[in-house]
Write a protein that binds this DNA or RNA. Structure first.
Length: 888
RNA sequence: GGGCGUGUAGCUCAGUGGGAGAGCGCUGCCCUUACAAGGCAGAUGUCGCAGGUUCAAUCCCUGCCACGCCCACCA
């Protein structure tokens, strides 16, 4: 397509073909690969790998946008950039979606298959969804080096995981222990503390009585879970509680099962809460477990893996806890050991995947001792080796790491890295190994088996920055540039996984490599619907990125997401806003359609002999360039977007293009060529500045703007601030010019003068250079406010008799009237303006007459107030005189 | 209970110790040859409430109210 064709085509930009075309060009041309740039420095972002649980949602779109914008920006600035893509196996989450699918389609559970068979089904799922995700990322314009793609279950990742596991195991940091864990009866696996959601639930306090052995005393005990009494191994009271202290050391008798249990004293028991007596069930309550440890109590497990009562449940065996609860209450009533029941709201843990009520249960699990690692991770941030943007998120990070609990890393799942610990069936030897063992390391027996559990997903995620760069294999590290890119530059992620992921990467990566994995951590907002609600399937308020791209184009969608990203924690996404920015993209397209016929007359360089309008726009462009670079440095995408948005709309299109029409169509060939050159210069910078945000349309337009030997925009230099292009005086003139034009338009509008109708205007000002500027801008007044006859006079000159006026601090504008009109409305307007201005002057007067203000305020503030006062007084003077004339 | 955060125009949100802002929406006029996905002009606020610090508070401090999120024990 040639530039002339452009003017024959639609006035609306259609993104779809353009986007596909450029993505292919970039990808085929290997533009996403890291290449040494002019800074000689590297810049690396490891993409937080999306879960392969399903297709991408709006949150991922934000992830892609914020990272791709950074990468493209740094790439253009001349860094050797690597954005490393990947996907996460997301153990529990993925296994459960596949289990659900199998249940739905085949009516089977995973136990109807062998481990190998079922894993094959998950792998199939992974292939399908992994492909969709990568396609979605491409549609968004993501520019990672796809050749680096990794999956958290790749053999390379497994190698890293096993090496680290073995090291930590041999150091004694990984240990096996009977511990109370969160048991998810639906997933039938332990889950970590972080995977438990606490929800307020309407329950009840059940008051029961326990008999004290060899005594008539009845202990009244309040509990929310009477069914666990079958697992009670003590009754605890506070040793300082006068009511019960004398009973410590005696025995109580558990109702129904009639087991004798000790009455113990423990400070944990709150005298005020409940009845002051606590039944202790170390097998099924976190606090009770701790009490049990302190007092060496027996642990009794009464619950099966599926959440029903086991053999110890007596006649309630096989019942779900909730059912058993009701039956046991009935039984207690029969026994006369039930006192009362009170409504009680309390929080109950639910699995964040399965939504099942979590049963605290004691079982043998693998743990990682994180006490030392957590301290180091805290140090890294406190000493500034790693910085959070926005800084407030450090608190969230610290709050977890400063009181870490050892991490339960084993999961009773199939989908994940199997724990590399081997057990010998003959000699009881067990050991951790980096390779798949075939015989016992001690007795050479081949009767060995590997631990069936898998590792928590976050174990492999914690190593991700190293794994992806080839660690621990020397050759891979060389090939993938480990030394160049590690530690990485920036991690971009959401605040919801600061605990899960960020903290773990900081701990594990440092433990293994001795280095913190990133310099910066940018925490972006979570995407919500326009009402600020989380997007969820149940609310059906999700926004599908592909829909948005199809409807508005990837550029508009990206710009919307970027414009909404700064230091905020929520981004309320309303498709209407995307529509608004789609209009902006279209504006860019049409501004180019205006410029394109003149490109042939434009020179490649910025001309030296700029006129005042040109100096103004170059100055403004220079400012926006500075603003965009500095705000991006601090991850203020919102500031960058609003800076370029208002420059393009409010400066370049509304004023500079409008002021250029006359020159471009005029007789002065030199001026025309100069203006065409400036337009081209500006537009090249505009598309370059915008490219990281809206890569497609900018690359498309660049094709028409670039010089023959220019490279593609994706690797072109990003504009930088240039001190020499600062023309403050021209900016000041133009701002005043704009103010005057707006005033004239305002007067026209208030008189209902038709847009095409010409008017005569007289301007009065005592600023000589401004007067000269206005005189020289005659064409501007004609083009932008349809001024036929313009007079620019000093304020000493006579004011026109029949006219309406508007006063500015620097200039009075009079619109001359032909016939008589009713001035009442105009007088009202002037009086309103006068009132407002006088109020402002009063405020300033008050300040200036305040001695304390004069003595305490900074001199520049005082100067400013004084000059404002003078300007406003001038304006008041102008208005007053006109009012006098109008009224006479 | 602990922590973090929020409360600014109808909506979504920036913002700063010294003149209250943007986008969208709204009102009026215009199909002016880049753009009606447009142009021009315009209206809109006790900056949550109450105190305090300061010459000066939307901004800093304290308390209160409302809301959101996170962590953590509640038997």
């Amino acid at each position: 397509m040639t530039t002339t064709d452009l003017n024959n085509i639609s006035t609306t930009y259609s993104p779809n073909d353009v986007e596909a075309k450029w993505y292919k060009t970039w990808e085929d041309g290997k533009y996403f690969k890291p290449k040494p740039g002019k800074t000689g420095e590297s810049y690396c972002i490891i993409m937080p790998p999306p879960n392969v649980t399903g297709i991408l949602h709006a949150g991922h779109a934000l992830d892609v946008t914020t990272q791709d914008t950074l990468i493209r920006w740094k790439r253009m600035k001349g860094y050797e950039t690597l954005w490393l893509p990947g996907m996460d196996h997301a153990g529990i989450a993925t296994q459960s979606v596949v289990e659900k699918k199998v249940q739905k389609e085949e009516g089977k559970t995973r136990n109807d298959y062998t481990r190998e068979e079922f894993l094959e089904k998950i792998w199939k799922w992974k292939e399908e969804y992994g492909g969709i995700i990568a396609k979605q990322q491409r549609v968004m314009g993501a520019s990672p080096d796809w050749d680096y793609s990794m999956f958290t279950m790749d053999p390379e990742a497994n190698e890293a995981v096993r090496k680290v596991f073995v090291q930590l195991y041999n150091e004694g940091l990984i240990y096996q222990s009977d511990y109370i864990i969160n048991w998810d009866p639906v997933l039938q696996s332990a889950i970590s503390d972080a995977e438990v959601e606490h929800q307020e639930v309407q329950g009840a306090f059940y008051h029961l009585t326990y008999k004290v052995k060899d005594s008539d005393v009845l202990l009244e005990i309040a509990t929310t879970r009477p069914e666990t009494l079958l697992g009670d191994t003590a009754v605890a009271v506070n040793p300082n509680d006068e009511r019960f202290a004398h009973l410590i050391g005696k025995k109580a008798i558990v109702p129904i099962c009639n087991r004798e249990i000790p009455i113990i004293g423990d400070e944990h028991v709150d005298i005020e809460v409940g009845t002051g007596c606590l039944k202790v069930t170390p097998g099924h309550d976190f606090n009770d477990f701790e009490i049990g440890r302190r007092h060496n109590l027996e642990i009794i497990n009464i619950i099966n893996k599926d959440g029903t009562l086991n053999d110890l449940g007596l006649e309630f065996k096989g019942m779900a806890c909730k059912t058993a609860r009701n039956h046991i209450v009935e039984k207690l009533k029969d026994l006369g050991q039930f006192v009362k029941q009170e409504d009680h709201v309390h929080s109950v843990g639910h699995g964040d995947r399965s939504k099942a009520i979590i049963e605290p249960m004691v079982s043998k699990q693998w743990f990682l001792d994180v006490q030392d690692m957590a301290g180091v991770a805290v140090d890294g941030v406190e000493k500034g080796e790693t910085t959070f943007y926005p800084k407030q998120w450090e608190n969230t990070y610290f709050s977890w790491l400063k009181e870490p609990r050892n991490w339960c890393i084993s999961r009773q799942l199939w989908w994940g890295h199997q724990i590399p610990v081997f057990y010998c069936g003959d000699c009881d030897h067990n050991w951790a190994s980096e390779i798949d063992e075939t015989k016992c390391a001690k007795c050479s027996s081949e009767n060995i088996k590997q631990d069936p559990d898998v590792l928590d997903t976050w174990f492999s995620s914690g190593l991700w920055p190293m794994t992806t760069l080839g660690w621990p294999n020397k050759e891979r590290m060389e090939e993938r540039g480990y030394d160049k890119f590690f530690p990485t530059t920036c991690l971009v992620t959401g605040f919801d996984i600061i605990f899960f992921w960020v903290a773990r990467m900081m701990m594990m990566t440092h433990k293994i490599s001795g280095k913190k994995p990133f310099k910066d951590i940018y925490i972006h907002a979570l995407v919500r619907d326009k009402q600020g609600r989380k997007m969820s399937k149940s609310l059906n308020n999700g926004i599908d990125p592909l829909d948005m791209v199809e409807q508005y184009g990837a550029d508009a969608f990206r710009f919307t997401l970027a414009a909404g990203s700064g230091y905020n924690r929520g981004l309320n996404l309303d498709p209407e806003r995307i529509g608004g920015y789609r209009n902006f993209i279209n504006k860019i397209w049409n501004a180019f359609r205006f410029i394109s016929p003149f490109l042939a007359n434009a020179k490649a360089e910025l001309p030296k002999d700029l006129d005042q309008q040109e100096k103004w726009i170059i100055s403004e462009l220079n400012s926006v360039t500075k603003e965009m670079n500095s705000s991006m440095e601090e991850y203020r995408y919102d500031d960058s977007c609003s800076a370029i948005y208002s420059f393009v709309y409010d400066k370049f299109c509304s004023w500079f293009i409008e002021l250029s029409k006359n020159i471009l169509h005029g007789d002065d060939k030199a001026a025309m060529e100069r203006r065409a050159s400036v337009l081209k210069y500006c537009y090249k910078d505009i598309v370059a500045l915008l490219h990281p945000f809206t890569p497609f349309i900018t690359e498309e337009l660049w094709g028409y703007l670039k010089e023959e030997d220019d490279k593609l925009l994706i690797v072109h230099d990003y504009p930088e601030f240039n001190e020499e292009l600062d023309y403050a005086k021209d900016q000041d003139f133009m701002n005043k010019f704009i103010e005057v034009i707006t005033s004239i338009r305002n007067l026209r509008s208030s008189l209902n003068i038709k847009p095409k109708e010409e008017v005569n205007v007289s301007l009065f000002s005592d600023q000589e250079d401004l007067v000269e500027f206005f005189k020289a801008s005659k064409h501007g007044f004609a083009d932008l406010a349809k001024v036929k006859d313009l007079k620019v006079l000093p304020k000493s000159a006579q004011r026109p008799e029949k006219a309406v006026m508007k006063a500015m601090t620097h200039t009075e504008a009079f619109l001359i009237l032909d016939g008589a009109i009713d001035l009442t409305e105009q007088i009202q307007k002037l009086e309103k303006d006068l009132g407002k201005t006088n109020k402002e002057i009063e405020k300033l007067d008050k300040k200036l007459s305040n001695e304390k203000f004069i003595s305490n305020a900074k001199p520049e503030v005082i100067d400013k107030v004084k000059s404002e006062h003078a300007e406003l007084s001038e304006k008041v003077k102008s208005i007053n005189e006109s009012l006098k004339n109008f009224k006479s």
